[in-house]
């Protein structure tokens, strides 16, 4: 696809689907429904990851009424959507979330959106100083997890159709796509991949980290690390693989109300607090340890997938510079 036709292509999509894409507001980029393709941000990683599309911060589960007997009304109606501009790290984030919401108890809220969404990935053309997707076998041009992958090259986008959903989209909007110069574009993508490969500043070595994490639960390192932690939820809320939520009722006061689920964070004091006052993770030390081990060990133990995709958001936004790449290095170092 010629680069200057992207806006028209997206506008066309928006007429038939809910188009969700990264947009900027006051310097913050997040994924929102867009009608005007000119607003789409193409050159930076979003502040908030696109997990918001499948797992919004607040989601109504159902409404209820007890006015005349108990009535529970499910929240229904998931529009067909196209999620555009998902970076390779965030695509991997979806793959890490999938097994959590699957399994014996399949989560219909997540999957109804997941199934009715066509994901268009977007290769990166730059590497930010906080990026480390390489460490987790990622790459700035890896389309795994996308239905279609766009790779921006000099004059064109290389459009790779990766799944049957992608084929469906390509067929629907075939007028925007051409097959001329595909070979060249594929070579262009390879060149881009090689070039970006050398641009990573952070060299993260995971060798032996899992094994170390397996046996350092009681290490004093966690206490030292947690001293400067503020206990806020930034790292978890901005993490493409964090999936913790709370379930709360909202009573309208007229015997009707809502039940919603909303993001929660293992960094918060009350996350594991029992009604009795007992708290299995009573201090910042246990809570931060849980988060780090979740990323490097627990998720891997449970699902065979890393709980981190190296997007670098927590590194960029932690208010006190608790840097996961440094933590990984320190885990390797400590006795």
């Amino acid at each position: 696809m010629e680069r200057d036709r992207l806006a028209a292509f997206l506008d066309q999509i928006a007429t038939r689907y809910h188009l969700v894409a990264p947009v900027a507001e006051d310097g913050v980029v997040d994924y929102r429904r867009v009608d005007d393709a000119r607003r789409v941000v193409l050159d930076e990683l979003s502040t908030v990851p696109p997990k918001t599309h499948f797992f919004p911060q607040t989601e109504e589960l159902y409404s209820y009424s007890t006015v005349t007997g108990l009535e529970i009304k499910e929240t229904v109606g998931t529009p067909a959507a196209v999620l555009f501009g998902v970076r390779p790290c965030d695509l991997k984030g979806f793959l890490a979330l999938d097994p959590v919401f699957a399994g014996r108890f399949r989560d219909p809220y997540y999957w109804s959106k997941r199934e009715r969404t066509i994901i268009i990935g977007l290769s990166c053309t730059t590497v930010q100083s906080t990026c480390f997707c390489q460490a987790f076998d990622g790459s700035p041009v890896n389309g795994e997890g996308a239905d279609v992958l766009f790779t921006p090259l000099e004059a064109v986008y290389l459009v790779e159709i990766l799944t049957s959903k992608g084929e469906q989209l390509a067929a629907e909007f075939s007028t925007f796509l051409g097959t001329e110069g595909v070979e060249e574009a594929l070579r262009g993508k390879e060149a881009l991949a090689r070039e970006l490969d050398g641009r990573f500043i952070r060299q993260v070595d995971l060798e032996g980290v899992k094994e170390k994490a397996d046996r350092m639960f009681d290490h004093p390192y966690w206490r030292r690390l947690a001293r400067r932690c503020l206990g806020c939820g930034i790292c978890t809320f901005l993490c493409p693989t964090c999936h913790c939520f709370d379930v709360v009722d909202e009573n309208r006061g007229d015997r009707t109300g809502l039940r919603v689920r909303c993001w929660d964070s293992c960094m918060f004091t009350d996350f594991t607090l029992h009604t009795s006052g007992h708290n299995p993770r009573p201090s910042k030390t246990e809570r931060l340890r849980n988060r780090i081990l979740h990323k490097l060990k627990y998720h891997l133990d449970r699902y065979g997938l890393h709980g981190c995709v190296g997007c670098g958001r927590c590194v960029a936004k932690c208010p006190v510079n608790i840097d996961l790449t440094k933590v990984i290095a320190e885990i390797r170092e400590v006795d």
Binding site: F101, D107, F217, C242, R261, D264, C266, F271, N290
Partner: peptide, 24 residues
């Protein structure tokens, strides 16, 4: 063992002890 739970189906993430979910 008793831990605080919200979903009961291994999604909400709060009843973990290490890699295990107490609800599952």
């Amino acid at each position: 063992l008793e831990l605080r739970m919200k979903c009961g189906i291994g999604k909400c993430g709060r009843c973990n002890i290490g890699s295990k979910f107490v609800c599952l």
